[in-house]
Amino acid sequence: MSKPIVATTSLAGCFGCHMSILDIDERILQLIELVDFNKSPVDDIKEFTTMCDIGLIEGGCCNSENVHVLKDFRKNCKILVSVGECAIMGGLPALRNNIPIEECLHEAYLNGPSTKDANPDKILPNNEELPIILDKVYPCHEIVKIDYYLPGCPPRADLIWNALVALVTGDELKLPYEVVKFD
């Protein structure tokens, strides 16, 4: 029997959630017995090569590329899981959400302490190659349907492990009090 296939990505996140996946320590050996990985920074596969069973999404959507990747995951994964506060509610990047986008760009590229003198031509990044920033940072479930949520910043390794095992084996998911946290 073939193993379930997992894909992962980090959108507007800090890779902390991926670090937390690695934090399952020696259980990582069990993990590779349980599942195969497809598109993921873990194995550096850049594009989907097959339909996956589980997609783990770290980070919310702050730009057009995030949206494309997220939609691609929805298309190629049977189950999609929002992993971590950023995927669930935008997280720290969403601190900009009540500031007009013009002001954000201004602060970042024209007036910020590190760019004020370094950008004499007042250039705002505008290359066809670059993604376009969204008006605000969106939680993933405000863009596509998300099946499960694993909160935390990052989610505790035990939470990710318990959830993955439950999803793969179909066993009931037990969540001890200490593993579900919002920070």
Partner: peptide, 19 residues
């Protein structure tokens, strides 16, 4: 359906950077 509208979400920033 979330009815997320990408065009609308990038409208302001596109205009602002001139794209």
């Amino acid at each position: 359906d979330t009815k997320f509208d990408l065009n609308k979400a990038i409208q302001n920033s596109s205009r602002y950077v001139g794209r």
